[in-house]
Write a protein that binds this DNA or RNA. Structure first.
Length: 220
DNA sequence: CCAGACGTTGTT
DNA sequence: GTCTGG
DNA sequence: CCAGACGTTGTT
DNA sequence: GTCTGG
């Protein structure tokens, strides 16, 4: 699954990469994005691709926001049977821009963080859903089974999209039904990814510097 | 009918 | 142990 | 996801 | 809002 990630890529490069039409916000490089914080999202709005910040941790429109525990992940296999997600899959699909994510591997010495990224030094997106509760718009990251690379650390991984056709299918809710778009909800092939250990410095959400993504030896 | 849940992951 | 905050 | 708090009364 | 359990 996915509970922490990075987006260190400069804004100009993101604009080139994702055919963004409108920017609602600026974006500073982030090394340690945690739940409850704002993430950089893309939403297709009247044919235009709009980038903006949105809070991570979904609170359904019908929920009592003061009591609800925000949902940071959603299993892609069961979206249609979950009250929190089923009404969102047709018109409230979105993606979250990232360039790496962290998973913690359980070991004798404790839970050790691993950073996964593309072999190509490029950003990618997570498939997500959004909803609005009162004035607050929130989002969740979809998960799928882990590929054989991530499986070493966890049995689930976030749905990552890297090619423009898949991204368009997921984003363009006017042109593609959920049934059509659902074909992109599968693990990314392990061949295009790599993972490496990082320091437990990343454990604290207060730490948000380049030190979070520095490789450390396997011995920890 | 009304009340109460509505989620994921990991751990026990 | 469990909840909240980041 | 992990880290950090987890309380009251009274005073500034 | 919508579904399940009683």
């Amino acid at each position: 699954m996915c509970g922490r990630f990075s987006l260190t890529t400069p804004l100009e490069e993101l604009v080139k990469h994702y055919l963004i039409d409108e920017f609602l916000e600026d974006w500073k490089p982030r090394y340690n994005i945690a739940p409850s914080q704002n993430v950089l999202s893309l939403i297709s709005h009247k044919g235009k691709r709009r980038a903006g910040e949105i809070k991570w941790g979904l609170v359904p429109h019908w929920a009592d926001a003061s009591k609800w525990k925000p949902l940071i992940n959603a299993r892609s296999e069961t979206l249609l049977v979950k009250p929190s997600f089923k009404s969102l899959v047709h018109s409230r699909r979105m993606v979250i821009i990232a360039d790496g994510f962290y998973e913690w591997k359980k070991e004798e010495s404790g839970r050790m963080p691993v950073r996964f990224k593309l072999k190509e030094e490029k950003p990618f997106v997570f498939a997500g859903l959004w909803d609005r509760n009162g004035e607050v718009t929130t989002s969740t990251i979809l998960t799928t089974e882990a590929n054989s690379l991530v499986e070493d650390v966890h049995e689930r991984m976030p749905v990552m999209l890297t090619n423009s056709e898949d991204i368009e299918k997921w984003l363009n809710t006017d042109e593609y039904s959920f049934d059509q778009a659902a074909s992109v909800l599968k693990p990314l092939p392990r061949e295009v990814m790599e993972g490496y250990r990082v320091s437990t410095y990343v454990n604290s959400p207060k730490h948000d510097t380049s030190e979070c993504i520095v490789p450390v030896s396997s011995e920890g």
